[in-house]
Write a protein that binds this DNA or RNA. Structure first.
Lengths: 181, 181, 181, 181
DNA sequence: TTTT
DNA sequence: TTTT
């Protein structure tokens, strides 16, 4: 109910690979995504520079299933979650630490990146089957006072379907053995 | 379950007045807070400038009760929520709009950092009695999927449908005359 | 340099109309966008409910120009900015208040919404001419567009010094009659 | 100017130790902070559970100096920044990765809410030496402590304790053996 | 109306 | 290692 602190991460980036979805013994899904965000700037010499940051994102349950179904390599996605560093042992028995973003909210961007119908986009939040987690942002209309309604609500409609998303950077190959991420 | 879009606000500021707490017919608490954030900068003349922004924040249920109990004029607080503009009519019958931050997460600041006693500070998130809304950030160890099955729901979660969503919103009557904020 | 408080808004939504871009006497661009975010949930009766929230977003300088060039009705966009409520007088001389999101960072989603090549997407932030980094939250009164001319305009904001900051943003003339948004 | 993606972290937590401040050859300060955020919940058995997450935070220049001057073990602070994972080699020559939060905005919490004196609190953001505004998300390589001296390393540096940090940044001597964080 |  |  009460905790001390805020631990929030928000990223908008592209998947370097298709999501990896596994299932727990209890049937819950777990998805691992590798998402890239990049920033570019000019250095002192006026040279354009770019740096790509790869984020390891983990999702559970329904969110994991949705990711596995709608996201793929190259997909652009908005992720909201928290940071979590877990400890593990490598083959030599050394302690290792891997930091991941545990997602609790996801918004697929750009609709179709494979150009078809319209869909495959939307905001999904953790919404445990029993009644756990979740997020409030979208929670019911909390106080929803509205009333009339009126205009504009049509909502605007998005569009952006034809997203020919990209090759993205780096093949992102490898990620071998010992590397936690 | 799914929504399109992200609507998030994060502020850290000070209360301009003690929280105003009211109770709905159904017994739920509603709190209204006026929170200031300010920024300062130097203008071209090198003059120090400052601008204060006042935010109208609304909280419901448990969060409202906690605010009423622990916050007061001058308190520094971290608020996370969403924007919501509601329409109302002024005395002349004109449509008016007021934008508020509907909070779903609160972190009282200012614990003792000067090493003395301790006090009421901590992070509180919407955690409806029935089991609605809420936020995930703090949700149980969300990563913790494995294992059993159900668990986790402990607090964290909310479940979105069984949301006894509420009438909540209460007409929001009152708020006097003409001033929206 | 130092300010008290944090005032941050993050939304991902769709434009309800094409951006409205105007130019200040000093040549700086100002763009007004109407962006929708929506959330859906099931009420107690199990009925699917939806609520759309419309956000008024204002951008300055370079960001405004980019918005005018690449965004259109329906475009999905990520916006980061701060809340700002400005006071104005309606025709009856009554005080009115309108809350806007002053954007300092924008990320066009979904690449092409018109289906062509790949592009038209990317993250743009307020970035002073000298080419530093920037962001507005704390930045000087990023909204501060007006005034002279010159500098900083690069994009909206930053620079913390030469900001001819302002007495708030432009009168915001125009916007018709009575409706604040 | 333009980048693809958003990489943002927001935490509110307490320092586990006094900040470690070092200076680069070029005179720029670099601070390493270890900040804890915790969440609590009840497990299936109704047992109160708690999990603490430790975040490694790195700041540069002015922000680093302010942190060194005003923060200390136990201080509560709001941090906004971006995630950055740097690669380094351990003694066995294995690749290791450490994820840090490169801060570009800081708000010291805990001013007096109990009405007494006043103190060192406030929001400080990255503000390049030339005195512009700044922020890092998009900012150029904000970590890029320009100037000479091996700049950019700026970023890697830190390590707050056991970091066998890497070549990257600065000598970054010390920091023991194998543990990255 | 807060805070610095 | 913090904090509650």
């Amino acid at each position: 109910m009460a905790s001390r602190g805020v631990n929030k991460v928000i990223i908008v980036g592209n998947l370097g690979n298709d999501p990896e979805v596994r299932y727990m013994p209890n049937g819950n899904a777990v998805a691992n995504l590798s998402i890239a965000t990049s920033e570019s700037w000019k250095d002192q010499q006026g040279q354009q520079q770019e740096r790509t940051e790869w984020h390891r994102v983990t999702m559970y349950r329904r969110l994991a299933e949705i990711a596995g179904e709608y996201l793929k390599k190259g997909s652009q996605v908005f992720i909201e979650g928290k940071l979590q560093t877990r400890k593990w042992q490598d083959q030599q028995g050394n302690d290792r630490y891997t930091t991941e973003i545990i997602a609790d909210n996801m918004q697929m961007m750009g609709g179709r990146n494979d150009s078809q119908g319209q869909n495959g986009q939307g905001n999904y939040q953790q919404r445990p089957q029993n009644n756990q987690s979740v997020q409030s942002n979208q929670s019911p209309p909390s106080q929803a006072p509205q009333g009339t309604g009126g205009f504009n609500q049509g909502q605007s409609a998005p569009s952006n379907q034809p997203t020919n998303t990209p090759k993205m950077s780096e093949p992102d190959i490898d990620f071998d053995d010992d590397i936690p991420f």
